[in-house]
Nucleic acid binder design. Structure first.
Length: 1016
RNA sequence: AGUCUCUUAGCUCAGUUGGUAGAGCAUUACCUUGACAAGGUAGGGGUCAGCAGUUCGAGUCUGCUAGAGACUACCA
């Protein structure tokens, strides 16, 4: 079989996903081992309005790598997909569409029709991201796909709401909330973002004391001057600008307050000062004539006010500011709401202002104060404004009646989990664990009602008198009310309320509280016996399909707690924390053990990707340009938890890597000649039989070491380490050295006898036997006799086998490429599957992920191989530095001890080939003419006679450069070794190591020096 | 304001418990050698932001300084 010369990702991407999905490979039921441990991940459900961005691609890659890796290890694996109904986003889309298509407002068509259209919108456009996930190769179980407004999940929402209400954890109350005047809904604190405005203003308003004369406009300039003078005097010790005392009685005495939102003064119901503030002490209890309103408001004392800040006097607007609200509560102030839900002033603001937009009203208030001579001054002021996370409208704090979740007990649930069990374990732990804990400790109640139509309508009903009845259904509420006519609360729940249940509602939780419903006794044995039945079928060699449906009733018991959650920083509070609390509260289980917090993928400019900055990189474009696999493994290579700048070149590097893999396979296939991959040839070759060629013992050792290290790295979620290990194993060890070392043997006719017909069945049998031993996880005997060198296991078989194992390790990262190539390898079949999947049709995704065998690590082989490699490199170095054309063949003389001579002799052919030498002379001593280029390695001295080719100056310089380098290193070492403190206090093995190195350096330097002398 | 993170080769980034500084890309020279020019071989390039401390020994631990960033809170 011959492959195309370069890898074309498109073909592979189109060929496999559908088959994987249709064959049920992604479903946990594919696993027929009744004792298999489960491994589960729920996807952070993307918004149905969303399309794939780089953050998704990164997270999906991590989840898929973990899922595929665990699946290959024989776990019963479930990665559950789904989408979130995204209340505000969808509502906005539908409103826009309605306006565009029919020029109608939602109220024109009514709630029922609106919700119908929202569903339609979801059906039409909500699948963008799920389709894109198929392109990514995500191995999710589509048969378990969930949507937060599915019937089951909605039922869970109602159950949770009712239970929390019944237990007093949910309440309805009048509070200051964040109001978005554009979306006309309340927002939780977490949905409000801050935006810094440099051109903000701070307005200083004069509030006249009651009974003092209002000033005439004419007097304004005069008083201004007075005030300023006086305040300067007054301020000797402070920053206050109150003008009391300076002002002549009869002309009006003022108290000056500062505000960034002058329009709210229309709703002021007090002015507060600090009771211990000497400037104002005597005014406490007096009244103020509030301008523009005709109302009188009191001056009160409250500790909240800081005398040092501003003027030391604060206007109090309890209905429009959270702090003022608190003050108002303490002093029993009237809460005067002066705006409507669109951010316009209402009737309470006065006839002159009613109907004005808040910003228009602001300008008008300022103008009127100025006209009245009551505007003290306007300062430029950098201010941070709260804005709606989604529409960027400035959020208005406003008094409103809403539903809240009391967070006290919720917080304790989460804190207890963290403090007693360290759950969840964050990766990286720093800083997330601390940030999470600190946030919990300062948690405020959660506003859960939203004034939207799209979402879970709150299961609360009211009678005519406004009494509330909460029930799972209207019938239940009616019953509770004693049969009254009820009307349901028109609000819906915060989207995060339903996604907070995601970890268990997706597994079919029906509303049972923890502990109230143990698995029914009857069902347990049933499931068990089913499982046993399956396994019997399987062992009998049957083709039995895993018992469909057998596991479905048990999803909750089987898959919760999930193993890991992969998400971004931005939703740790919004989503992760709530899932932890609600899952524990309602199921008694942990939602997940671990949380992997991914870094942010930044644009090329180092800023977060965003539409407004236009620095986004579309994953789909990357897929088209470099292939899905290259993009995936690049993403894995940067998944260290730190933020990372996007870099196309990085993807290109892995595109090249994919091509390298393709071509290495192409080479192996071109020379396969009817041989087949065989398990016995590699992983189990641990006998370190010295009759096996060094290169083979070495690659097997490297392969096992790599497998062990890759598994370790993945256990620790060090994806970048795993990728780097695989990259260098495949490219450096396998391609650059192993293939090159074996090339002659594999391509040539000499010494590569095809396996004798008789040996084939034998090998096959061994392979099966081995794989069983291996999979049993045992340390069982390795297939003795399976690996008699050069006979049973041909070089061709072994290279195919090493390649096959390497492809398996790469598969979680590069699923398409590896599947495509694996299926082309001769000898691959479902016999290579993990036993749990032996009934499934052949695919690399169900093969055993190589665990690596520590006993197969061959230190002697690695040492010897690096000695050979060193020699080759030195000769290459001589050729390159002496500028000798490859057309010129030369003899290489090597001197070494007896053991090393043996090693080098055994690898003579390889050294000749890779060093491009013609002849090798190996002896105890060098016997070469003066005109030779020389070098030294740790184990050998070498020389290349170059009569007529050598430039003595160049050679001298070359040698001297090396001497300089080595001498520098040696003097560093000797300095350390002559330090008595070091020798005394450092670990002895460290000291010994340095001594040995120093001696070796001394030898090498001496050799090089004599080489230099020989030149003169 | 508080808490935290980061600063390593021209660029993007790795550096596990302190023990001789790494990768990819870029760059230089040579190679169209039968898997791969999306390739190969050999090089060059770093007082690990700065200062001080602990230590026999610091990229790694501690403190300070300077830049960059994140989060939380406040902002009358």
């Amino acid at each position: 079989m011959e492959l195309a010369k370069a890898y074309d990702p498109k073909a592979a991407e189109e060929n496999h996903y559908k088959r994987w999905e249709e064959s049920g490979f992604f479903r946990p039921e594919i696993n027929q081992d009744p004792n298999a441990t489960k491994y589960s991940i729920v996807i952070p459900p993307p918004n149905v309005t969303g399309s794939l961005h780089m953050g998704h691609a990164l997270q999906h890659t991590i989840m898929d790598v973990l899922t595929r890796w665990k699946r290959m290890q024989g776990f019963r694996t479930l990665w559950l997909p789904g989408t979130d109904h995204a209340g505000i986003s969808v509502q906005r889309k539908v409103v826009e569409q309605l306006k565009k298509d029919e020029n109608k407002k939602p109220t024109d068509i009514g709630r029922e029709e609106f919700v119908k259209r929202a569903w339609k919108w979801k059906e039409l456009y909500g699948n963008t991201i799920t389709e894109q996930m198929r392109r990514e190769g995500a191995s999710v179980d589509w048969t378990r796909q969930r949507f937060t407004m599915d019937e089951d999940l909605s039922l869970a929402v109602r159950n949770v709401f009712c239970t929390l209400y019944e237990e007093g954890w949910i309440y309805r109350g009048l509070r200051i909330v964040n109001w978005c005047p554009k979306d006309k809904t309340v927002l939780s604190d977490l949905e409000v973002k801050e935006e810094t405005k440099k051109d903000g203003k701070l307005y200083y308003l004069r509030y006249p004391l009651a009974g003092t004369q209002a000033p005439s406009p004419a007097s304004v300039p005069l008083r201004d001057a007075e005030v300023r003078d006086d305040s300067a005097t007054f301020n000797a010790g402070g920053t206050g600008v109150a003008c009391e005392g300076a002002c002549v009685p009869g002309r009006g005495t003022f108290i000056v307050v500062a505000t960034t939102r002058p329009e709210t003064m229309l709703g002021d119901t007090a002015v507060a000062v600090n009771g211990s503030d000497e400037r104002y002490k005597h005014l406490v209890g007096k009244m103020i004539d509030l301008p523009l309103t005709g109302r009188q408001i009191p001056i009160i004392a409250d500790e909240y006010v800081e005398a040092e800040f501003g003027t030391g006097a604060v206007k109090v607007t309890p209905a429009h500011d959270p702090n003022d609200y608190q003050i108002g509560q303490r002093h029993d102030l009237q809460q005067l709401l002066v705006m409507n839900d669109a951010g316009e002033m209402n009737a309470a603001a006065g006839a002159e202002f009613e109907g004005l937009d808040r910003f228009v009203a602001r300008a008008k208030v300022v103008e009127m104060f100025d006209e009245l001579g009551l505007l003290e001054k306007v300062d430029d002021y950098e201010i941070t404004l709260p804005v709606c996370e989604r529409c960027k409208t400035i959020v208005e704090p406003i008094l409103s009646e809403q539903w809240f979740v009391k967070m006290d007990e919720m917080r304790d649930i989460a804190l207890d989990l963290m403090k007693t069990e360290g759950v969840p374990h964050f990766s990286p732990q720093i800083p997330h664990e601390k940030v999470y804990t600190a946030w919990l400790e300062n948690l405020k109640d959660w506003t859960i009602s939203r004034q939207l139509w799209w979402g879970h309508q709150i299961p609360a009903w009211y009678d005519e008198d406004g009494n509330v009845f909460v029930g799972r259904t209207e019938a239940e509420a009616v019953e509770k009310s004693g049969g009254k006519a009820l009307k349901q609360d028109s609000d819906v729940l915060d989207t995060w309320f339903s996604s907070g249940l995601w970890a268990f509602s997706t597994f079919g939780w029906k509303g049972e509280q923890a502990g109230t419903q143990a698995p029914s006794p009857a069902s347990v044995p049933l499931r068990d016996s089913d499982a046993v039945g399956d396994s019997v079928t399987r062992h009998a060699g049957g083709t039995g399909v895993a018992g469909e449906g057998a596991c479905v009733p048990g999803d909750l018991e089987t898959f919760l707690p999930t193993d890991v959650l992969v998400t971004g920083r931005d939703i740790i509070f919004l989503w992760v924390s709530r899932m932890i609390m609600l899952t524990k509260k309602f199921t008694g289980q942990k939602a997940f053990e671990d949380v992997i917090v991914t870094g942010t993928v930044l644009g090329k400019d180092g800023k977060p990707m965003s539409k407004s900055r236009n620095n986004g990189v579309d994953p789909i474009e990357m897929f088209d340009k470099f292939g899905v696999d290259a993009t995936r493994i690049y993403l894995a290579s940067i998944a260290s938890g730190a933020d990372i700048k996007w870099n196309d070149v990085g993807v290109e590097t892995y595109r090249n890597f994919a091509n390298k893999i393709w071509n290495a396979t192409r080479f192996c296939l071109m020379n396969a000649d009817g041989t087949r991959t065989s398990l016995s040839a590699s992983l189990t070759l641990a006998d370190k039989d010295v009759r096996v060629p060094l290169a083979d013992r070495w690659i097997i050792s490297r392969l096992n070491k790599t497998a062990i290290d890759v598994n370790k790295a993945l256990e620790k979620y060090e994806f970048h380490t795993a990728v780097s290990l695989l990259y260098h194993f495949f490219w450096d060890d396998f391609c650059d050295w192993y293939i090159e070392l074996k090339k002659d043997e594999i391509t040539g006719t000499a010494g590569t006898q095809a396996p004798s017909p008789a040996s084939v069945p034998l090998r096959d049998a061994d392979a099966v036997a081995d794989s069983v031993t291996l999979h049993a996880g045992g340390t069982g005997a390795r297939g003795e006799g399976a690996c008699v060198p050069g006979e049973d296991v041909s070089a061709k078989t072994r290279i195919l086998t090493v390649l096959e194992i390497a492809l398996r390790m790469l598969h979680p990262f590069m699923p398409y490429l590896t599947e495509d190539l694996w299926l082309k390898l001769p000898g691959t079949s479902n016999a290579l599957h993990d036993p749990a999947y032996s009934a499934a049709e052949a695919t690399i995704m169900l093969t055993k992920f190589p665990p690596g065998d520590a006993s197969a690590i061959d230190d002697a082989a690695e040492r010897e191989m690096s000695a050979v490699i060193d020699v080759i490199k030195k000769v290459r170095n001589i050729r390159a530095e002496m500028n000798i054309s490859t057309a010129i063949k030369f003899t290489v003389h090597i001197a070494a001890d007896a053991a090393m001579q043996e090693v080098l002799k055994a690898n003579e052919a390889q050294i000749l080939k890779l060093a491009k030498a013609e002849k090798l002379v190996i002896a105890a001593e060098l016997d070469v003419p003066r005109a030779s280029a020389k070098a030294v390695t740790s184990d050998a001295r070498l020389a290349v006679p170059l009569e007529g080719l050598i430039d003595f100056d160049v050679e001298r310089t070359r040698l001297n450069n090396q001497i300089t380098k080595l001498t520098e290193e040696k003097s560093r070492l000797d300095g350390q070794l002559s330090n008595a403190n070091f020798v005394e206090r450092a670990p002895t093995e460290k000291v010994e190591e340095l001594r040995e190195r120093s001696v070796e350096l001394e030898h090498q330097i001496a050799t090089l020096n004599s080489n230099v002398e020989a030149l003169t």
